[in-house]
Design a protein around this nucleic acid. Structure first.
Lengths: 168, 168
DNA sequence: CCGAATTTTCAAAAAGTACTGAAAATTTAT
DNA sequence: ATAAATTTTCAGTACTTTTTGAAAATTCGG
């Protein structure tokens, strides 16, 4: 397979993949494009390569910057802004985990704390099932939260080798 | 907080949560409702409780069954079908991981295998960056794949205590 | 078998989400 | 300061996904 075709496939699958994970197609595609570009690109490069509008490009680049996956790069002597993606995939994964944890896991754990304190007779099976379900989700969620915290701090080599030990 | 209100909140947040993870709102809500219901429910119960149409209810129940999260229950002497959700959250998580791994991780790993074999001179920085990126994603992906396989087989107690040891 | 109850399907409508393009705002070189 | 280059915004449009509801198919008791 030629590089041009391989790039296309990579970008388009990464986009499709993203949509399964609550990330919009274009944002994932821009990320993919920057991941495989040896040098930083401008908005115009990205627009042209992916055939998308200026507004769309701009919005999604900014969102990628918010997620900490892409950064602005200043090239001396150039008027335009350039963008480049973090290439260390382990860092990328940690960054995504960190953001999603903050945006999604933490709010739901807060809610579960409140819901666990529902009024009512624990002998009523409706109350009991509700409380039991909420408690067990909370328990697993808290565990996941801690685990992810440690993972976010971990070095890849350490993390992988530690995992290798248990998950032999 | 009263049970009725707590239930509503649980169902609606679970629905919102689901949408961040590529699961549609209704499917997540039906799942939430069944999780906190002590007894199996019929389609009509679910339609009424969530105020959704028959078609929508039916489609999403079937999808939950495909995911292995809900099962049909036969109640002797009843004509209608009843449905109930697996209540053991650890089993639920394992089941979701298993399905998503199969549906999403595995196909992308296959693709990466193909893309890694791109033609071209490795001294060309475009080729090099592409191959390096693809290889490192593949490496991490394969590791994740193995880890998830072990997790799917694991007992919760075993799993949690093993994690506790490394992620002290 | 028959027919009522129940489940399933699916075309059309509604709702939700993303994209465009042009205008406004900002930046920078001179 | 000026104006050209560049970036940002956002109302309207296009696209995608979800939902409805009624018709078709299926199931099951008698």
């Amino acid at each position: 397979m030629k590089l041009t075709e391989a790039k296309q496939q990579f970008i388009s699958s990464w986009g499709a993949f993203g949509t399964h994970w609550g990330i919009n197609r274009t944002m994932a595609q821009i990320h993919a494009l920057l991941l495989i570009s040896p040098d930083p690109l401008t908005q115009d490069d990205i627009m042209e390569e992916l055939d998308i509008s200026r507004g769309n490009t701009n919005m999604n680049i900014r969102e990628l910057i918010n997620w900490g996956l892409v950064e602005r790069v200043l090239i001396p002597g150039e008027r335009k802004e350039f963008f480049s993606a973090e290439k260390d995939i382990w860092k990328v994964v940690k960054q995504i985990v960190k953001e999603r944890k903050k945006r999604e896991l933490e709010p739901i754990l807060q809610l579960l704390d409140k819901l666990e304190a529902v009024e009512g007779d624990k002998k009523d099976k409706h109350v009991k099932t509700f409380v039991d379900t909420v408690s067990s989700i909370k328990k697993l969620g808290k565990q996941a939260d801690k685990t992810l915290d440690t993972m976010i701090k971990a070095e890849e080599t350490w993390f992988v080798s530690a995992l290798m030990k248990i998950f032999k």
